[in-house]
Every structure is written in C-alpha cells, then in structure tokens.
Design a protein around this nucleic acid. Structure first.
Length: 492
RNA sequence: GCGAAAGUAGCUCAUUUGGUAGAGCACGACCUUGCCAAGGUCGGGGUGGCCGGUUCGAGCCCGGUCUUUCGCUCCA
C-alpha cells in the first residue's frame, strides 16, 4: 500500500520533532504511553514562546483583560454545576455486525423520532405510535437517572432498535466512558473525597469571577485570561499532539452586558483570526466552521480551523456562552454571581464570550506551517537540499546563532563578547564546531532566524556577516548593530 | 473500540528461501580546513518494541501484547 503525501508530511514532522528535541513520546523507554507526549529542549521553549505571545496579546495589549492561574483541582460541585458530570459521560453501545458505535441516548431518541414520523403518516391512527414514542423517552430518562444500563439495553432489545448500517440488533453491552479523570483527595478513599482533574480551564475563571472583578476593579466589558493544563480521557486520542489526554488550553472569557453578545461574538471572531494571521500563517490555510448543533451552554459557536497535513481541524473555539455558567454556579453555590452596572444602575449576571485555543494544537499548526524540505539550486548547477523551519522570529526558540569562522586567531573571544551582550536580551546559541555550512543547516532545522559569523575581517573593522534563515542571504554589518537588528525582528 | 499497515543504531533505511546484524547521515576525539550539509583516521552506540511458541538454530514462521500511522467511530 502506497503512502499518500499527507502521511509522509505528518511522519516527517514527527521524526523531525523527535530528532531535534521538540517532542518526544512520553515514557519512551517503556514503549511510550498512548497519546501522551513530552516537549524537549527546543519544543518547550517554542511552546513557552507561543504561550507568552498569546498571554501578552491578551493581558498586555488589552487594558480590560487580566490574567489568573487557577488550580487544576476544583471543588467537585463545580463539575455538577458546569454540566460535565452529566454530559461528559455518555453511555455507548456497539453493533457487533457493523462495528458501528452509538451513543445510547441518540439511538433511542432516533427510534422515537422514527415512531413519530410514522405516526404522522398514519393520521388519526398514529396516536398509539405517538404514545409509544413518548413512553420510550420517559422510560429512557428514568433509566438514565438511575444509571440502569441493563434496563437501557432491554429497551433497545424490546423495541427492536436496529443498527442503520447492518440492520441487525446484535449489540454489545452498554459501556460508560467517563471523559473526566478522577482521583481521591486525602488519604482515605471515600466516595465524598472523589475529585476530578479539570476537563477545561474555563471553570476556574467563572468561579473566580467576583474575586477578579472586585480586586482588579474591573468594569464590564472585561476579560479574564488563563493558560493551563486540562485532562480528558478520550476514547480515541490520536494524530500526534493534536488530540492528547493531557493538554494545555489558552482561554479568555470576556464578560459583557446581556444583549450585546452578538456584536462581541463578531468582535472576537475577527480579533482572534487576526491574531493567527499575525503569526505569518497564510489566510487560505484557515477557515471558520459555524456550529449548527450547539452545546448546552451556547447560543452561538464557531471553530477556527486550520488545514493540517491530515485535513482542516479545529484549533480554536469561540463560544457565546450566555449566562449559563455563572447562573449555574449561582444556583449550586447559593452565592450571587452578579455584577452591578453603574451606567444603568442595575444588577445582572453577565453574558460571556469565550475564546479557547489548544496550545498543543497551535504548536503543531506552527510546526506544520513552518516545516519545509527545500531544494536549493547552487551556482555550479548542482542541487542541494535542506530542512528548514520557517518559524516567526518572535516565537523561534533560538533567535541568534553566533558562529566564529575558526576556533582560533582570537575569533571565539570576539564571538563570546557578542554572546554575552546579546544573551541578556534573547536566546542565543554559540557553536564553533564543524564547517560553517553545516552549522547553518543545523540552525535552519531548529528555526533560528539569524546566524552571525565572526571572521578575520571582524578583527580589523568590527563587522560581521549576518545570515538570514529564509532567504539564506548574507549581509555585512557592524557587530555593534547585531543586537538591535535581532530585537527589531523579534518585536515586529 | 473495530479494520488495515508498520516497529531493526539518535534519524532514514538495508539484511529476498530461518544460520547469532549493516550502510548513509547524526554523535565523540584528533589531523587538515575555513562562508552554505568538506576530507581523513580512530571511536561510542543495537539482548532486532516486549513476552511466549515452533525449531538444533528466529529480526525473518506462529500466537499474544504494547506503541505509532491511516480509515471508520468519537470529539458536549
């Protein structure tokens, strides 16, 4: 079986990420752990730079957005209020013949809808069918409330609900997949002490809404930003670091006056896309995907999708969450989650627009977009190749490589002088081993935007050669101007 | 979770019917060199993913298992 080009691209990126210290399989000496990955020296730095760029674009560039860092552990009631305990654990059933998997509630509801359709055709005689459909739904809800899986399976069998693909009623047992990881707080494993690893970071923002609003003296509209780990026990976690069980989110919840959600939804939709484009990613690699079927908390939702080597996939979600979360926390905690608006002299529970990016997905996006196996036509007519990461200068792990042409004649001393000056301002890399061309290629492979070569002429007139990663072009500039040139490129 | 393919050195891969593993690149030392993956010498690195079976003998055959990729499914 031949591989498609896209297979090769993702494979090449995975190999490159491992070989150059960006991403390793977790616990690799023990054969790895499914869908868990570790970030290496350059990977962790790149990830941090992406996170910092996002954080600054939120909290530094907007006077009305502040940050928090909430704990991963939260009071168990948080997840009852958010709806995660109920809707994050869907019982599933498989058809043994077609191998298709269904959510049990979808399967039974689908059958009920079919009964109602038949009832409509049958006219007056359809009353019986309508009653059956209603009873079916009522029975299902009752069984769900008691977690009675055996009873649910009996419903499926009694009603002769069949798989739409195989047409058979040959079902497996119903199984529950709880997508939240749980553990015990305290040394005694009692029911009451069960807590969850957060499946999203957003709730840490909602429960702190009043703390933040009061202490930072925020006035609506304002936002709270947070980055941090979240955990989901995905049934299927795949495609490298795209879907992991432990992942990092960068979320900003923007609190607004009820009734203004449409305009703020549009505002953040554009704002966030512009942010992505500011990383130099071509616009045609992005698209919006509007949600038709909305989550329980949203009145509008869309994904920003990027064309990965394996197709268009979600990178960021923008949700109009209404006052669902704050209302639910008010209900469950019995604490008022209201804001007093001095402009209209009224209390209200704010509405929320959420922007939520997967940091690991963004990392993969940037790696995919930057990775190039380039063929170079040399002056003598022969061709050469290089692997280069066209990382934006502002997020590249190394900003500048300082390379003395030889390791003698006092060139290393001059190079280290420059190194000591520049490393206070940004990440530099120093190397005197191997031929200069080889050192250039190594820096290309990890995406270093600039290389500076110290040669014999430097000793005479204080100039150096600066080499640009993408064009491979070189120019001669005074050594004293190197730092300013790199800083300008980073801050652009 | 189902189906398909794969797993040999850090990376990319050889080893064609079973006979105790090689190359290129990478890595370390030294010599020569000095502006786009230079040359030479020497060296380190693999219980062939793991476990078991068949066999006098298994990287190769068989079973199981783990991991990865692809398709389906799932992704509030």
């Amino acid at each position: 079986m031949s591989k498609t080009p896209t297979d090769n691209t993702l494979q090449a990126i995975i190999s490159h990420a491992k070989e150059y210290g960006f991403v390793f399989p977790s616990s690799e000496i023990y054969d790895g752990l499914s869908a868990v990955y570790d970030y290496g020296p350059y990977g962790s730095q790149l990830k941090k730079n992406i996170r910092d760029y996002w954080w600054n674009s939120m909290t530094q560039m907007n006077e009305n957005i502040v940050g928090i860092d909430a704990a991963i552990f939260m009071h168990p009631t948080t997840w009852k209020a958010s709806g995660h305990v109920d809707s994050f654990s869907d019982p599933l059933i498989d058809n043994k013949d077609s191998k298709k998997r269904y959510r049990v509630d979808h399967l039974i509801e689908g059958h009920a809808e079919k009964l109602i359709e038949e009832a409509a055709k049958a006219g007056d005689a359809g009353d019986e069918l309508r009653k059956r459909a209603d009873k079916l739904i009522a029975d299902m809800d009752a069984l769900f409330a008691n977690d009675d899986f055996a009873g649910l399976k009996k419903i499926i069998e009694d009603n002769k609900i069949h798989c739409s693909v195989s047409g058979t009623g040959n079902w497996t047992e119903i199984r529950q997949f709880n997508l939240m990881f749980s553990t015990e707080l305290g040394s005694v494993a009692e029911e009451a002490s069960t807590i969850y690893l957060r499946p999203e970071t957003a709730q840490g923002i909602f429960v702190n809404f009043l703390n933040v609003q009061k202490t930072a003296r925020m006035k609506i509209p304002f936002g709270i930003a947070q980055t941090g780990k979240a955990f989901r026990n995905e049934i299927v976690a795949r495609q490298f670091i795209f879907r992991m069980r432990e992942f990092e989110q960068m979320e900003m919840q923007f609190f607004i006056k009820p009734g203004t959600q449409k305009e703020w939804y549009e505002y953040w939709k554009n704002e966030r896309m512009n942010w992505h484009l500011s990383l130099g990613i071509p616009a045609e690699k992005y698209r919006y995907h509007d949600h038709v079927k909305l989550a329980h908390y949203a009145d509008a939702a869309l994904d920003i999708e990027y064309e990965f080597p394996f197709g268009f996939k979600e990178v960021e979600g923008i949700h109009s969450r209404t006052d669902f979360d704050l209302s639910r926390h008010q209900e469950f905690s019995k604490k008022k989650m209201q804001y007093f608006d001095t402009e209209i002299n009224q209390h209200y529970i704010p509405y929320v627009i959420e922007t939520s990016v997967g940091l690991d997905r963004l990392f993969l996006l940037i790696l995919s977009n930057s990775y190039e196996e380039e063929t170079i036509n040399k002056e003598d007519g022969t061709t050469d190749s290089r692997v280069v990461l066209h990382l934006p200068a502002k997020i590249a792990p190394n900003k500048l490589a300082i390379l003395p042409l030889t390791k003698k004649d006092g060139l290393p001393e001059l190079a280290k002088e420059l190194m000591n000056d520049c490393k206070k301002s940004f990440h530099c890399f120093y190397e005197e081993k191997d031929a200069i061309g080889k050192r250039y290629r190594r820096q290309d492979a990890i995406g270093t935007p600039f290389c500076v070569t110290i040669d014999h002429q430097t000793k005479e007139d204080g100039t150096v050669t600066i080499r640009h990663r993408d064009s491979m072009g070189q120019e001669r500039i005074p050594m004293s101007q190197v730092k300013a040139l790199v800083l300008e490129a980073i801050n652009k």
